[in-house]
């Protein structure tokens, strides 16, 4: 279109070599413009470059602390103080990890962390599934009120209920034991259980009513329908809830310290996160018990190594399951309204 118009204009004016050259260059310009900015249907290269550029920049900002952590954890004392060593340590110094490993009592703490995160998570998955199914499948009176209470209890800061619950656990003699986590999660009140109930609720609402009716006609009772129809199709929701739950139980140190590990001592439980929280103290006491210079004085490198050690298990789990996780998130309809 444009070129024709240009030609016409060129014909009208005197035919000089310059006039012919101009439209040619303009055609090129148009093509370049199209290639760069894209049209309504295709994405231009410029736009793509901008998107990739932004994503890579922000992505770098995102993994910057992680890279920083890895880099610092392998540095020895001299490297940390040397301003010429910026990212890459002069030697791969593993002793940081060994020191952190011994001072956190890693093997035992890891095992306890796995138990403290894992057992309530399994209970959560089962109970939130049952409760979510109840909310999704049945229309009983007062259901809206109950959903309101559910959301309200999610918004409620745990600090309000923390103290009475602490006293309750104390009276029930389950404080400083794993039961302090299991009992609430069995009754659908664990850490962020409300969210998991909502996830299951959203998911089970997607099951076609016809399927349930068909099962009913074939003689399935309520529980049989739940186990034979709902549960087998709920794999994505189960995976998402499992992952979220285990990660959040793993990362929780505030309530873990209060209920399970014992803020005033008197509990044999310890998790990596709680150990990391009190790392500075525990390191010095551990260092004192080890004779001589077996452990160097506390420095950034060791702290970073300890941080790295405490997130490594969940990190590995996430990398192993991330593909299924992303797919599951798409299929659970977490955001369905």
């Amino acid at each position: 279109m444009q070129s024709k118009k240009q030609d016409g204009q060129a014909n009208q004016s005197k035919r000089s070599a310059k006039a012919v050259a101009v439209p040619k260059r303009r055609i090129d310009k148009y093509a370049v413009k199209k290639w760069f900015f894209g049209s309504k249907d295709t994405q231009g290269a410029g736009k793509l470059i901008a998107i990739y550029g932004l994503l890579i920049c922000i992505g770098f900002v995102y993994i910057y602390p992680l890279l920083y952590m890895i880099s610092k954890s392998f540095m020895q004392r001299a490297d940390l103080l040397d301003s010429s060593v910026n990212w890459i340590p002069s030697v791969l110094y593993v002793k940081n990890y060994i020191d952190a490993f011994t001072s956190m009592n890693f093997v035992k703490t890891l095992w306890q962390s796995v138990v403290i995160a894992g057992v309530p998570t399994l209970v959560n998955v089962v109970m939130c599934g049952v409760i979510g199914y109840g909310f999704a499948r049945y229309d009983f009176p007062l259901k809206t009120v109950m959903m309101g209470i559910l959301i309200f209890s999610f918004i409620l800061p745990p600090q309000i209920t923390m103290m009475p619950n602490y006293l309750l656990y104390n009276d029930l003699k389950i404080l400083n034991s794993l039961a302090a986590f299991i009992v609430p999660s069995f009754l659908g009140q664990g850490i962020k259980s409300q969210l998991y109930i909502l996830i299951f609720y959203q998911f089970f609402r997607q099951i076609p009513q016809a399927l349930i009716e068909a099962a009913k006609i074939d003689g399935c009772g309520h529980f049989k329908t739940f186990f034979r129809i709902a549960v087998p199709s709920a794999a994505p929701a189960i995976l998402v809830v499992f992952l979220f739950s285990i990660v959040w139980y793993w990362n929780e140190s505030y309530l873990t310290q209060l209920y399970v590990c014992g803020i005033l001592g008197g509990s044999e439980w310890n998790t990596l996160m709680v150990a990391l929280k009190g790392f500075n103290d525990s390191y010095s006491t551990a260092g004192a018990s080890v004779t001589g210079d077996a452990m160097g004085s506390l420095n950034e490198g060791i702290k970073m190594a300890a941080t790295m050690l405490s997130i490594l298990p969940v990190l590995l789990m996430y990398f192993a399951l991330q593909k299924q996780f992303v797919e599951s998130v798409d299929r659970t309809g977490i955001t369905g309204e």
């Binding site: 990660v247 140190s253 990391l276 929280k277 790392f279 702290k303 300890a306 941080t307 405490s310 997130i311």
Partner: peptide, 10 residues
């Protein structure tokens, strides 16, 4: 996955 309290503190 990793942005928990103690880790962020460090």
């Amino acid at each position: 996955i990793i942005a928990s309290g103690p880790v962020m503190e460090q």
